[in-house]
Design a protein around this nucleic acid. Structure first.
Lengths: 221, 221
DNA sequence: TCCAAAACAGGATGATCATCCTGTTTATAA
DNA sequence: TTATAAACAGGATGATCATCCTGTTTTGGA
């Protein structure tokens, strides 16, 4: 009198479970070090099911990048920056929030975008382009926010693209160092430095004029 | 009348050839994506010889990190910064030199330290510590240079550790972005931003005083 | 000269891994 | 109800890979 086993098809749920464990594994161990067998076991999914939703490992990774990594950048960076009173304050908020989170959880796994970017962008053009798009959107969001600040009077002569590039690079690099040192302290140091870049509009105006000149040279590139 | 094949033992040369191809392969394809078979073929080395000099793949990677990656950071960063008139000028020199080199060779393979740091620092504690030491030495060299500048009168209130952390992070992050975008332009943008961090000592002195205060707060961390 | 250790050769091995394939079950629409 | 496709199961397969092992050659000191 063994119970009749009933199976229920749940394609979305199964796909989601696979993406969940893949996102986690790629983040923790990387793409090459994560075997599909491990993922199948962790997700409780058979080979047939996995292959049905993701015919190749590359397809799975591409989905992780486009659906999960992009969303992570959106949630941890783009949305907080857009919601902040200014780009500068948004950047500070994110740095501090991430640093606090890392310090509390006691270990640093690194930035998912950076981790995959290093391992995959030279390996495959599709990977590289998908990852580059995320970097570009991230930078554009910050630069646009600086431009919006400028139109409402704030953030005098700061070059939007330059500030965005430095913010994203400083964060990415700081996360690399933090991951290697397993210490989030460098994030706070970088934030402190970042806050001293082209300090907020002073009352003088001379600084703004000087900056303008260099900005034009910069635009040539 | 076939020639008698003569073999000549050359342990140092063989070890060097293996490290050469391993350094290159780890940089271009990463650790996991580089098989020992590939390395043996590229170096023209047999399995026995490889195993004699490097009993495991990990031992080989550790040697690459400690002997090659550390040396690369020393040559491209530490020595130029020490040789420069000031830390600030040294940082600019390196950024510009690397950007120019990347633009001329047409592609970006990324920073060897960063590439391996991302792939290996969570995988193995020995890897992680070896890589963290290189990061630490890199930062310390820049910070020490700032301190030396200050003792000879330059670089007023700039916090040495903060400046070093930001320089290293900005460079590492910019290289990540450049590698993903296959465009070194972001390096120049980050350098431009970096040069506007706590701008060099003005004649006024008011700025220096303001900076001092924040610097003290920073030291608490 | 002789001998022990280092240096090198090259194949064996067992494990792992991504993909594929043949079925079976479930859902959907006609 | 029935036909059809999607969803899932689970094993097969061939390739790859790091390590190991046995044997040979070279080297340097006694």
């Amino acid at each position: 009198m063994a119970m009749r086993k009933k199976r229920t098809n749940d394609p979305e749920g199964m796909r989601r479970r696979v993406l969940d464990v893949a996102e986690d594994a790629f983040q923790a161990r990387g793409y090459h070090a994560s075997s599909l067998g491990d993922l199948m076991a962790a997700a409780g999914v058979t080979g047939g099911a996995l292959h049905h939703h993701f015919p190749t490992k590359k397809a799975l990774a591409l989905a992780v990048i486009e659906e999960r990594v992009a969303a992570a950048v959106q949630e941890t960076w783009v949305e907080p920056v857009l919601a902040a009173p200014s780009a500068r304050e948004g950047v500070r908020t994110v740095f501090e929030a991430v640093a606090a989170e890392l310090e509390q959880q006691g270990y640093v796994r690194g930035c998912p975008l950076n981790n995959l970017a290093h391992e995959l962008s030279l390996a495959d053009a599709d990977f590289r382009i998908a990852l580059a798009d995320i970097f570009a959107g991230w930078r554009r969001a910050i630069a646009d926010k600086v431009r919006a600040d400028q139109e409402t009077g704030g953030e005098g002569g700061t070059d939007p693209d330059r500030f965005a590039a430095l913010a994203v690079a400083a964060y990415s690099g700081a996360m690399s160092i933090a991951k290697t040192a397993q210490d989030a302290g460098v994030l706070r140091e970088c934030l402190a430095g970042l806050e001293r870049v082209e300090p907020p509009p002073s009352q003088h105006g001379s600084a703004a004029r000087r900056r303008r000149k260099v900005l034009r040279r910069q635009t040539i590139r």
